[in-house]
Design a protein around this nucleic acid. Sequence first.
DNA 1: CCCCAGTCCTGCGGGC
DNA 2: TGCCCGCAGGACTGGG
Length: 280
Amino acid sequence: MPELPEVETMRRGVAPIIGSRVAGVELPKCPRKPILVAPGLPAMRKRLVGAEVTGVDRIGKRVVVQLSGELSLVFEPRMTGLVLLTAPPTTEHLRFRLKLERGPVGELLYWDRRGLGNVQLFTAAELAERFADGRLGPDALQLSAEGLRERLAVSRRAIKVALLDQRALAGVGNLYASEALHLARLSPELACQTLRPADWRRLHAALREVLETAIKYEGSTLSDGTYRNALNKEGGYQNHHRVYDRADAACPSCGKGAIVRIVQAQRSTFYCPRCQKSRG
DNA sequence: CCCCAGTCCTGCGGGC
DNA sequence: TGCCCGCAGGACTGGG
């Protein structure tokens, strides 16, 4: 479930490839159904081999390797994808290999157990089109409190559901939406319209706090053990979750109310009904 | 505008 | 004990 903190951790982890030159592109033998790699291998080789890595960025929940010639190689991990510099958790789910030369690192790997993710190469124009305003909102860590309010306040949707809308703001997923709402003491079921200015300010501060702390701990590795950083090491933020996947546990704020699990837009939401009131 | 259900795919754990 | 089903929820699509 890589969200902003996990993808940001991946981005930082693969930054050492900056300055390296692409020596080759390979699709490892994988017994699973192939993931989307676009364009195909021949076109990718033709355009990438010899190109120099000029930067590693993040767009929402995607890692973007910038290359000379205004090329962007975009890794979208979705549920179970990992961008790695070292040996992957399994060889059978290894999907993509970028061989490098003249740098401290030999290769950049994309691994994906479920294979819902993808690897796509874009020109500058294609990248701008793909992530234009209206298709992807501003990054959750770049957005001001006022910006957050402006983008969501008119909506009638529940705030938890709205936070998952990548067109409104980019990077927040199911786990950190629940975490931020708990810290902000806002019920996930509140309609955006009903939030007051002070609520938006609290939510903005909580989002920032939760996301930045999660980055500090290098993201959350859940019980399935899937998520790892670029060196195949587990994150640590799962030990600091307030509500996510903690149904029936005591609330870390009030110590009394039990955390409950509800379903919104077909996804699990966790919260404390005692601390997170549906009004105000 | 917003909601819902379905799609992709794999591995796991709960229930029988 | 073993098997099967449902669930996990990223992004997207089509229908209401």
